[in-house]
Design a protein around this nucleic acid. Structure first.
Lengths: 181, 181
DNA sequence: ATCTTAGCGAACAAGGTGTTCAATAATAAA
DNA sequence: TTTATTATTGAACACCTTGTTCGCTAAGAT
């Protein structure tokens, strides 16, 4: 990829990340992104067709780091019945979110999270499907899967909104505790 | 309230509900609402300052029916340890959402749900706080409360997105089963 | 050194926003 | 019924955002 393209793309991502931490996604204009990134109008549209495409690309970029191949590998079934492996993976995700230079916290909170959460949950669904220690519960599998994914996503959002006041280890622990005890 | 005002307000709500079932909230313009409601431009702005204000008003309207005073009354602690009361209340909410003439399903899904969910969770938090049968779990109370609220909200969204394929009774049962077993 | 591609920036039409105002019609109060 | 009040109207307004086009320039690849 041309160095110029990479530079422009980075500038757009950076500007967008900054803005998304300041105001609602819906209220951010392409004009503002252009101004903040200090690029030409036509240049923006040469890279992204719409604002939604930009968000999608940013999410894909972020998640490719957070949900690494190793993390998503299938051979992680846990036969201890204690979910140590899943807990470790969730901890890993939380650490990534915490340490990321990109403004993930900003994206997740500040009411921009609609689309972000959608993409986030897609990855989580894949992860949980593969780490499905059947819970001994009288409910359909699709219900349980959605419950696990949704409640973890909500947990992350809550964790971020509350200044990450618990450590990743604690948060993952509590989640496993509440979900699988 | 003047009959004219009520009529206009209803027309706006109706038009908005219809549109929100057709396209993303973010992409709905005031112009479209005006055209659909068949009212004057200045009339709209006499009623609502922004689109967000309109959504807020609609949500308040809906929730005032769904979360009735009876439902929110405090004296509903359940000492059986089986959460029969909470389950009945959740079932009641699901029935309301299902039968509502207003396009609640449309609002909840179709990616308009960001703000709706926010208001929804406010009410749920109040409800769950009052029906807090301590779960015997090693996690902070604020974590548990958020988990219960968030996972129920996610359950409802999933239920609606999947054509409400389970009955309200089943869905509430599964939720209690997974959360409190 | 030359070919190729990205970025620039100005201009454009189309359409949305939020406000104002005088005229009109519906409603409430006497 | 008459009168006073208030909501709605529709046009006009300046302003902003959008997405596209185009010739020019500059950076990068070969």
């Amino acid at each position: 990829m041309d160095r110029r393209q990479q530079k422009t793309r980075d500038a757009i991502f950076k500007a967008f990340s900054k803005l998304i931490g300041q105001k609602r996604y819906a209220n951010i204009t392409v004009q503002e992104i252009i101004d903040e990134a200090n690029i030409g109008r036509s240049t923006f549209y040469a890279h992204f067709e719409t604002k939604d495409e930009l968000l999608k690309a940013l999410c894909t970029d972020i998640f490719s780091h957070v949900f690494s191949d190793e993390l998503m590998s299938e051979k992680t079934h846990d036969f201890s019945g204690e979910n140590y492996v899943l807990e470790a993976k969730l901890t890993h995700i939380l650490h990534h979110l915490k340490d990321s230079e990109k403004n993930i916290a900003g994206i997740l909170s500040s009411e921009s999270g609609d689309l972000f959460m959608k993409y986030f949950k897609d990855y989580l669904t894949e992860l949980f499907s593969k780490n499905f220690n059947e819970i001994k519960v009288n409910a359909p599998a699709d219900f349980v899967l959605n419950h696990l994914v949704g409640s973890f996503a909500e947990t992350v959002k809550w964790w971020v909104d509350n200044s990450m006041k618990y450590t990743p280890e604690q948060t993952a622990r509590y989640y496993i505790e509440v979900s699988y005890n």
